[in-house]
Simulated assay, not measured.
Amino acid sequence: MKEARKTGNDCKCKYKCFERVTEEDRVCILKKFNEINDKILRDTYLSGLNSLFPVSRVRTKDGSCHSRTVRNKYTEHLGEESNKVCKKAFCALHGISTKTVERLAMRPKQDDCLTSSKE
């Protein structure tokens, strides 16, 4: 059996994510995530905490087209309250890599490509 995930290091970002999420909440988040044994259910759980929003303003120095059309927001539900956290804190709280989050963020784009090719 695989070893249980562990909370990663503090993100030390300007939002102070680890200060807003208490040690008790971190343990609870990780315990809840480690209890999910099915990969599909884990991915669904993580996807539910990640929201995609359209980029509202694109600023490029040379006026070229910017390929990024959406941005991600990561939230943690702590009881009835939900906190916005950065990507690094989101990964650290769940003991996952950034590649996992990026894979999940690409999923809706892949689904859009599949549906447009069928039409």
Rank of each mutant, 00 (worst) to 15 (best):
E3D: 10
A4H: 08
R5W: 03
T7W: 09
G8Q: 03
D10A: 03
D10N: 13
K14F: 10
K14T: 12
K16Y: 07
C17G: 00
F18D: 04
E19L: 12
E19I: 04
R20F: 07
E23F: 07
D25C: 01
V27E: 06
V27K: 10
V27C: 06
N34D: 04
I36K: 02
D38S: 12
D38Q: 03
L41D: 13
L41F: 04
T44M: 13
L46M: 07
N50Q: 14
F53P: 02
P54Q: 03
P54N: 03
P54G: 03
V55R: 06
V55W: 06
R57A: 14
V58R: 15
R59H: 07
T60V: 07
T60L: 07
D62P: 02
S64T: 14
C65D: 10
C65M: 10
S67F: 08
S67K: 15
T69W: 07
T69V: 09
R71Y: 09
N72Y: 06
K73Q: 12
Y74R: 01
Y74N: 05
T75N: 06
H77G: 12
L78Q: 04
L78H: 01
E80W: 04
E80K: 15
E81P: 03
C86H: 03
C86D: 00
K88S: 11
C91W: 01
C91P: 01
L93A: 01
I96N: 00
I96E: 02
I96P: 01
I96K: 01
S97E: 05
T98Q: 11
K99L: 11
A105E: 09
A105I: 08
R107W: 15
K109F: 15
Q110F: 14
D112S: 12
C113G: 11
L114Q: 09
L114I: 15
T115F: 11
T115A: 09
S116N: 10
S116L: 14
K118Q: 12
